[in-house]
């Protein structure tokens, strides 16, 4: 049964990867907004933002990467919603396949699509002067955290895709997620924010993740931030996965 589930997931993942290959605009549009933010903040606002020593593009990139993921996962909700509405999920579910493979295929596709978008954004940042001396283990750690973050957000997207009533609803949920990095340490140091805002910024998931990635890129010790970051990612992942599984099951009653 488990082997069959892997096989079915592989077949269905191949299907949705084809969708992406045939509409590469989804990857481009995912990367456009974060790149626009990157340009805007580095070349327009950046001069007025004091982040201490080091270049602003180095400071900014981790938050931009999270925005990239937050805008990329909207397509997962969108694709899942269209599959449900078009009846193809009904077709799959009436066939002798592992039912969970329908969702996992979308999740794995999201990982691949977001990885490509992230590589594009990092490429642009390199052109803009982003530099890091991070070694292999640091890059692996950054990749691991971004993967966990993408997985967690993708399962939120699955909840949105499963429960949406319209196409707009399926993608609108991602706006708050895209906005979250603005109230964090992603763009400016949290010390400059007034009391309650600062408290929120320092205790929401994005700050610990941003600080961790920034520390890894800058070859500085990341301290407890990395565990807070991992904790947030795993926590969100577990809750969103649980909700998805419940909603998915309840569709059949």
């Amino acid at each position: 049964m488990t082997i069959r589930a892997f096989g079915d997931t592989a077949v269905l993942t191949g299907r949705s990867l084809r969708h992406i290959v045939r509409s590469p605009d989804t990857i481009i549009t995912t990367a456009v907004m974060p790149i626009a933010f990157l340009l805007l903040f580095v070349y327009v606002f950046g001069g007025a933002i004091d982040t201490g020593a080091g270049s602003y593009v180095n400071y900014l990139l981790p938050g931009i990467l999270l925005i990239t993921v937050a805008s990329g996962i909207a397509y997962t909700a969108y694709r899942l919603f269209l599959d449900l509405k078009g009846g193809i999920v009904d077709r799959f579910q009436s066939m002798p396949i592992a039912r969970s493979s329908v969702l996992w295929a979308h999740v794995l596709t999201s990982l691949v699509a977001n990885a490509v978008s992230l590589i594009v954004v990092v490429g642009v940042a390199l052109l803009m002067g982003f530099r890091t001396g991070a070694g292999v283990s640091s890059w692996l750690a950054v990749t691991g955290i971004l993967t966990a973050f993408t997985l967690a957000l993708t399962w939120i997207a699955v909840v949105a895709g499963l429960s949406a009533k319209s196409v707009d609803g399926a993608s609108a949920f991602s706006y708050p997620l895209i906005f979250l990095p603005f109230i964090s340490s992603a763009f400016v140091p949290t010390e400059t924010m007034p009391g309650p805002v600062r408290w929120f910024a320092e205790n929401q998931p994005v700050t610990s993740i941003v600080n961790t990635i920034r520390g890894l890129f800058a070859e500085q010790p990341v301290g407890d931030d990395i565990w807070t970051a991992v904790g947030w990612c795993v926590g969100i992942l577990v809750v969103a996965y649980g909700c998805s599984a419940m909603i998915y099951r309840n569709r059949v009653s």
Binding site: R4, G7, D8, V11, L12, R15, R18, H19, R22, S23, G86, G87, I88, D90, R91, F92, S94, M95, P96, I97
Partner: peptide
């Protein structure tokens, strides 16, 4: 097998790819 009220086909794939997809899912 079920043929629902609205043609449940994958618009982005070709006709052949749709058939291959279902054949693979039926192992």
């Amino acid at each position: 097998s079920l043929t629902g009220q609205f043609a449940a086909v994958d618009e982005i794939l070709s006709g052949r790819e749709n058939l291959v997809l279902v054949a693979r899912l039926r192992h």
